[in-house]
Amino acid sequence: MTVRSLAALPQPKPAEIIRYGEADSQVVELFLPRTRPDGLMPAVVIVHGGCWRAKVAGRELVRPAAGALAQKGFAVWSVGYRRIDEEGGGFPGTFADVAAAIDLLATQAAERGIDRGRIAFYGHSAGAHLAMWAAGRHRLAKDSVLAASAPLRPRGVVSAGGLLDLQGQAARIRDVCGIDPAESLANPAAKEPFAETSPVDLLPTGVRMTLVHGIYDDIAYPALGLAYAQRARRAGDQAEIFVVPNAGHFEVIAPGTRAFEIVAAALEAFTR
Rank of each mutant, 00 (worst) to 15 (best):
G49C: 00
G80K: 04
H138W: 10
G90P: 11
M1K: 03
Y221A: 06
G123N: 07
P255R: 08
L185D: 05
D115I: 02
D143I: 01
I17E: 11
H48M: 06
A57F: 05
Q238K: 10
R4S: 13
C51Y: 11
R139D: 03
Y122V: 08
Y221L: 06
Y221F: 12
R19A: 15
E111W: 03
Y81T: 05
D97F: 00
H213C: 14
L32W: 00
A170F: 09
G168N: 05
N187S: 13
G89T: 08
R59D: 03
Y122I: 01
F250K: 04
D180Y: 14
V47W: 03
C177G: 06
R272P: 15
A190M: 13
A101K: 03
R231D: 12
V76S: 09
R59A: 04
A223F: 09
E261S: 15
H124D: 02
A128Y: 06
T205V: 04
A43F: 00
W77A: 02
P199G: 06
H213Q: 13
A141G: 13
F31M: 02
L6S: 12
G39N: 00
A171I: 11
S25R: 14
E22M: 07
G168V: 02
G89Y: 04
T257A: 00
P14W: 08
E196L: 04
A186Q: 12
M209A: 15
A259F: 09
Y81G: 06
